[in-house]
Design a protein around this nucleic acid. Structure first.
Lengths: 185, 185
DNA sequence: CTTGTCTATGCAACGAGTTGCATAGAAGGA
DNA sequence: TCCTTCTATGCAACTCGTTGCATAGACAAG
């Protein structure tokens, strides 16, 4: 039930509606935990029923009304409990890696286009992260007053940047390997 | 349905029983696509029904009998079709990243132990990968005869190694950040 | 005035993944 | 003899995640 916790963190950072949360899951927190709006609405409803979050109907003049959610006291407690529980180290799910091994039983060269497409997607993501870093984390560091939230968001973003850089280098390695195998057969 | 394809690849690399596949998913291919034995048995049954794989009952004198599966012609076709289809670039799911951002609303220092536990798990995985690389990919390279399967398994393993190295460096960054935040408050 | 886009919320059906439990033969140690 | 471990297979219940579809107000472009 990690989506629940991701929502709690996001709502603590800033209260918002299901729609707004879905937006945030397209950026920011969603880089590390993806979710669709259907999932979010369903979980929000359950969390409200469990008393973890509060709702407030907000009438908007020039848009459809929305329901603004915020974290209730039991939600804060639940998050704190989860933070103190150990979690399993991630088990990766890399579909492309399965494809690469599968290419041994097909045409390795035919995979190159696909890998290059992934390479472009990761290059885009890296550019996007770097733009976000420049925008949000290059202010004049007021010494002695580092905001914990900012610092932690930044270290997570640095993880995303490191991940994309590593992936780009690896995909170059993959492309070179596939090309090397091509002419041989 | 990527599990189906991972199983096809694994069975092409070497036919085997559900139990043996579950073993492989604890090592090797499972590093990039995790699966439990229950999942594997269920999917094998479905794939057999769909004619993608063949079964052969194998009586074993000093062990329980097993069912050995191998890829049938329609299975090879299905795999080939999948290899030529584009897939979505992975969406990461990093629970620890959610926890790190959540730590801003709790005690950042309390997370250090957990992060160090993850660090150890990743260090173990890296050592394991490196041992596998030494074992399987340091033979005397017969020039001009690179086995495509070997080459591709190696490049995927190199990806795993790069991932673990990057993760270790990032977790060090995370620990340093959490420590920096500690005394400040 | 229709079409498309953006905000905003939701249902229904299905498929994928997890957890707990159950069975059973063979081997080895206490 | 009993207990545990390893091989080997499987069911049932449940939760999580995905896909397709539906509604509806506001606004802009054609």
């Amino acid at each position: 039930m990690a989506l629940e916790h991701a929502i709690l963190v996001s709502l603590l950072e800033k209260p918002g509606s299901g729609y707004e949360l879905a937006r945030r899951f397209d950026r920011s927190i969603g880089y590390f935990w993806a979710a669709t709006h259907q999932q979010i609405y369903r979980v929000l409803k359950r969390m409200e029923g469990d008393g973890l979050i509060d709702v407030r109907e907000v009438a908007q003049p020039d848009r459809p009304d929305k329901k603004e959610y915020s974290v209730a006291a039991p939600g804060r407690t639940a998050l704190s409990r989860w933070l103190h529980e150990p979690i399993e180290p991630e088990s990766v799910r890399h579909e492309l890696a399965v494809k690469i091994r599968g290419a041994a039983f097909d045409d390795p060269v035919a995979l190159i286009d696909e890998v290059e497409r992934h390479r472009r997607a990761h290059a885009d993501r890296l550019a996007h992260y770097l733009a976000g870093e420049r925008r949000d984390f290059t202010g004049p560091e007021a010494p002695g007053t580092p905001d914990a939230g900012q610092e932690l968001q930044h270290v997570v973003l640095r993880g995303g940047i490191a991940y994309e850089r590593m992936t780009l280098a690896w995909l170059d390695d993959v492309i070179a390997t596939l090309q090397r195998l091509g002419p041989e057969r």
